[in-house]
């Protein structure tokens, strides 16, 4: 009785939210393809290459998820979403999961009826200035002109930061990252502000990258992560634990190169459970035993994905920073697999 009331409430909530119906996991399995909402184009995080194949940090998570659920990392249909269409695409059921550098905020989680299942990148808003401006801290930017993308949370953060520090600034409104970079280089503004990862990518492609510095202050919290529809907890668990499998794999030293060897030789029971050679965690998720192994094999563990797409070996050269494992002073932490 209690259970049916609970289920009834759940489905009513699902209907109210305009959800395509619970059971996304079954839908994906029946369809044989994962619909993954991605960015139309963000350097390092998700964009199609010259051959039209999607690549990037966020895209790798789509692949891992498809590998875990469907057994094939290529069975993903990427749906490019813009800032305006992304949440509706998820709410209306057009995509199963949105992995599109979306910031986890209270209102998106609670009011828009989504579940952010993890944080795959801890970002924050920073400032870039020209070296010859002679500024070494964002607190010295009083009276500066600042290039800022309109209609984003960064605009509000900027206003908050200057107000809190009792400083004034003149905004120069720009439409997108490319325009901002252009205005900033042309000298229309003293400083350019956006997410620190975006600043790093912009700086990497500037003709005179050495003449620009990114100031140490990070003025906002931008936890970016995958999100699913509210109320579909089974599917939410699948996405969450697929992500945790990648983080745990890095922690235990499981890489795409040594995964087969690890699976057969390891004595660590946690790794065994993760790779499905012991216990049956997969069945609890509604998947088979080797889901975690396939997810890791798809494009490597969290660290490998980071390094391949945005890490120090790439032109973007992002440091791990907050995104290092908890064992190395970062925030990436996977709960135990048991």
């Amino acid at each position: 009785m209690k259970k049916s009331v609970f289920l009834g409430t759940l489905s009513a909530a699902a209907l109210f939210a305009g959800i395509a119906g619970a059971g996304t996991l079954e839908d994906v399995k029946a369809r044989g393809v994962l619909n993954c909402g991605v960015n139309v184009g963000l350097t390092g995080f998700g964009a199609p290459d010259a051959n039209g194949n999607y690549q990037g940090f966020d895209v790798s998570l789509c692949k891992a998820l498809a590998a875990a659920v469907l057994g094939d990392a290529t069975k993903v249909k990427y749906a490019p979403t813009t800032g305006e269409t992304r949440f509706t695409a998820l709410a209306s059921g057009e995509v199963d999961v949105l992995i599109r550098n979306s910031t986890w905020t209270f209102s998106r989680d609670v009011d828009l009826k989504f579940d952010f299942v993890a944080v795959n990148y801890y970002d924050g808003q920073g400032f870039m200035v020209k070296k010859d401006l002679g500024v070494s801290s964002a607190k010295e930017l009083d009276g500066a002109t600042v290039c800022i993308q309109t209609g984003t949370t960064t605009e509000l953060n900027l206003a908050d930061f200057f107000k809190a520090n009792n400083m004034s600034y003149t905004p120069v409104n720009v439409g997108d990252d490319t325009e901002a970079q252009r205005q900033y280089l042309a000298g229309a503004c003293d400083a350019y502000t956006t997410d620190a990862s975006g600043l790093a990518a912009s700086r990497a492609t500037m003709p005179d990258a050495d003449n620009h510095i990114i100031l140490p202050e990070i003025i906002s919290k931008e936890p970016l992560g995958p999100l699913v529809r509210h109320g579909d907890n089974v599917w939410g668990d699948v996405v969450r634990w697929t992500y945790f499998a990648l983080v745990a794999a890095e922690e235990y030293g499981v890489t795409s190169a040594n995964i087969e060897e690890m699976a057969s030789t390891t004595t660590n029971p946690e790794i065994k459970r993760l790779l499905g050679t012991e216990g049956d965690l997969g069945a609890m998720l509604g998947l088979d035993k080797e889901w975690g192994k396939r997810a890791i094999a798809a494009s490597g563990n969290y660290g490998e994905i980071f390094e391949a797409n945005i890490g120090s070996a790439t032109p973007i050269k992002l440091a791990r920073g907050l995104n290092a494992l908890w064992t190395q002073g970062g925030l990436q932490y996977a709960p135990p697999f048991r």
Binding site: N39, L42, A47, P80, T85, T178, A204, T314
Partner: peptide
Amino acid sequence: VAFVGLQDPLKGITAVVRADINWKGIY
């Protein structure tokens, strides 16, 4: 149609091209 996530030649494809680190910043 770029605004609804379709890849039109002016904005959609250009965004894709610019997302490539090799061509980022081309205007």
